[in-house]
Simulated scan of single mutants.
Amino acid sequence: MTETIAKRFETKEKAVIEVYGHVGVLGANLRNLSETGAFLEVSHGDYVPQKGDLLNLTVQLETIKKTHNVSAEVVWTEGMGLGICFINKDEVLERMMAKALGF
């Protein structure tokens, strides 16, 4: 089976990350984006998300006056950088329960 890689687009948007299970928000720079995920660099905050963390990501697109809010899971990290995959908002609770129960 071959894996399809989604085309990525470079961006310089600012983002706000909320990590489910942690208090507070993190600032981040959205470096690239695809249909399936994104690469972010944490710019400020008191926590660096880890692989498996579930996120609520908000991106304010000033030029077109729109706000995008998506759920995601961290799939890899390197320093302050995060690779995330987008997930359906309905899956967040299910994944949180699975993590809590050790599945």
Rank of each mutant, 00 (worst) to 15 (best):
residue 82 L to M: 09
residue 38 A to W: 01
residue 31 R to Q: 12
residue 75 V to W: 02
residue 38 A to T: 02
residue 66 K to C: 03
residue 98 A to G: 02
residue 68 H to P: 00
residue 15 A to K: 08
residue 101 L to G: 02
residue 36 T to G: 12
residue 34 S to K: 11
residue 50 Q to D: 09
residue 70 V to Y: 08
residue 53 D to V: 04
residue 89 K to Q: 15
residue 74 V to G: 12
residue 72 A to L: 07
residue 71 S to G: 04
residue 51 K to C: 04
residue 66 K to L: 13
residue 75 V to H: 00
residue 100 A to L: 15
residue 65 K to R: 09
residue 49 P to H: 07
residue 52 G to Y: 02
residue 67 T to K: 12
residue 14 K to H: 06
residue 30 L to Q: 03
residue 20 Y to E: 06
residue 62 E to T: 11
residue 63 T to W: 11
residue 96 M to I: 12
residue 36 T to C: 07
residue 18 E to D: 13
residue 62 E to V: 12
residue 101 L to T: 06
residue 29 N to M: 13
residue 33 L to W: 07
residue 98 A to Y: 03
residue 31 R to T: 05
residue 85 C to K: 14
residue 97 M to P: 00
residue 96 M to C: 10
residue 93 L to W: 10
residue 27 G to M: 01
residue 59 V to E: 03
residue 74 V to H: 11
residue 99 K to M: 13
residue 57 L to W: 03
residue 87 I to F: 03
residue 47 Y to C: 05
residue 22 H to F: 08
residue 54 L to T: 04
residue 26 L to S: 00
residue 31 R to K: 14
residue 59 V to G: 02
residue 71 S to K: 09
residue 28 A to Y: 01
residue 76 W to A: 11
residue 66 K to R: 14
residue 96 M to A: 09
residue 90 D to K: 12
residue 52 G to K: 01
residue 29 N to Q: 15
residue 69 N to K: 13
residue 64 I to P: 03
residue 64 I to F: 07
residue 56 N to C: 13
residue 39 F to R: 13
residue 23 V to P: 01
residue 86 F to M: 05
residue 29 N to D: 15
residue 77 T to C: 08
residue 49 P to V: 06
residue 64 I to Y: 07
residue 49 P to L: 07
residue 39 F to D: 04
residue 29 N to V: 10
residue 59 V to T: 10
residue 48 V to D: 03
residue 47 Y to N: 05
residue 17 I to L: 15
residue 80 M to S: 15
residue 102 G to C: 08
residue 103 F to I: 11
residue 43 S to W: 02
residue 60 Q to S: 09
residue 80 M to T: 15
residue 71 S to I: 00
residue 43 S to A: 07
residue 99 K to C: 04
residue 71 S to H: 10
residue 22 H to C: 04
residue 29 N to H: 14
residue 40 L to V: 03
residue 37 G to K: 01
residue 39 F to S: 09
residue 47 Y to H: 13
residue 43 S to K: 09
residue 35 E to W: 05
residue 21 G to E: 08
residue 28 A to E: 00
residue 85 C to P: 00
residue 30 L to I: 05
residue 56 N to P: 01
residue 27 G to F: 00
residue 56 N to M: 14
residue 30 L to E: 03
residue 19 V to D: 06
residue 30 L to C: 11
residue 16 V to I: 15
residue 15 A to P: 11
residue 80 M to A: 15
residue 39 F to W: 05
residue 38 A to S: 09
residue 92 V to Q: 01
residue 91 E to A: 14
residue 103 F to N: 02
residue 29 N to R: 14
residue 40 L to C: 02
residue 73 E to A: 10
residue 68 H to T: 10
residue 56 N to V: 08
residue 69 N to D: 09
residue 16 V to P: 01
residue 14 K to P: 00
residue 32 N to A: 00
residue 62 E to R: 11
residue 100 A to V: 10
residue 85 C to I: 12
residue 92 V to R: 01
residue 24 G to N: 05
residue 19 V to I: 14
residue 15 A to Q: 08
residue 29 N to E: 15
residue 28 A to T: 02
residue 32 N to W: 00
residue 62 E to H: 11
residue 19 V to E: 06
residue 90 D to A: 14
residue 46 D to N: 14
residue 36 T to P: 00
residue 67 T to D: 04
residue 95 R to C: 05
